[in-house]
């Protein structure tokens, strides 16, 4: 399992691995928002948590079609399916590698970009915490979507359509927690629900992903 994790991270950071893709997209979107909305700092700080969450979610979505498609094309998935490692574990590890190379950089970049969005001071902690709790769910749900569409050429559109509705609960509670935190209100309820979503998806999604992948490998 460690070998797979190290290999996936190594592949992501080497040339053509797409490590910076999500991060660059996140950066571009958030930098553009103040230009498009205007320099009204009151408005910007009001929409900041929501825009940052949408940016992070779409950046995550952008990198999903590479998650399994490359391993499918070069036959790695067939070989992994015959390896001693259970497919559920292999997919959990791949989701973890995706989170480390995509979700974690977004969490780290978010407070920096929060400055551009004039995010209120008390909101930073909640923004980072909510992203830290929510992005793992995005990675495991995304792995499920990738497993579902893995045999399809140019499956990116279908993947987005399938995954976006599954992302909504995470977005709703994540953005709500960041919003309440920024407004100085109590954010513990949406935060707990967000943690619940992440815990449940991390526990259950690998089994669903492995089941659909087995069908797709036939």
């Amino acid at each position: 399992m460690k070998a797979l994790l190290i290999r996936d991270i190594r592949l992501a950071v080497r040339a053509g691995g797409g490590f910076g893709l999500g991060l660059a997209f996140f950066l571009i979107v958030i930098v553009m928002v103040p230009f498009a909305v205007g320099a009204d700092t009151g408005l910007l700080s009001k929409i900041a948590p929501g825009v940052l969450w949408i940016g992070a979610l779409l950046a995550c979505l952008l990198s999903l079609d590479r998650l399994l498609a490359l391993d499918f094309e070069d036959g790695t998935l067939d070989l992994l399916a015959t390896a001693p490692l259970p497919l559920e574990a292999a997919l959990s590890v791949k989701a973890l590698a995706h989170w480390i190379t995509t979700g974690l950089p977004l969490v780290i970049a978010a407070p920096v970009l929060g400055v551009l969005m004039n995010l209120p001071t008390q909101g930073y902690v909640w923004l980072v915490l909510s992203l830290l709790l929510g992005t793992p769910a995005l990675s495991v749900i995304g792995t499920f979507g990738a497993a579902l569409t893995v045999g399809i050429k140019r499956g990116g559109l279908l993947l987005s359509l399938l995954v976006l509705p599954l992302y909504l609960p995470t977005l709703i509670f994540g953005a709500e927690a960041a919003q309440r935190g920024a407004a100085g209100a109590d954010a513990s309820t949406p935060m707990l629900l967000l943690a619940g979503i992440s815990a449940a998806t991390i526990a259950l999604m690998p089994f669903a992903s492995a089941a659909v992948l087995k069908v797709n490998l036939r």
């Binding site: 592949l11 053509g16 691995g17 036959g75 790695t76 067939d78 001693p84």
Partner: peptide, 17 residues
């Protein structure tokens, strides 16, 4: 069961490794 090493047309190699 768990005894097979399978090799097909594609080798599962990564170009960047």
């Amino acid at each position: 069961q768990d005894q097979i090493a399978y090799a097909a047309h594609s080798d599962g190699l990564k170009a960047m490794l």
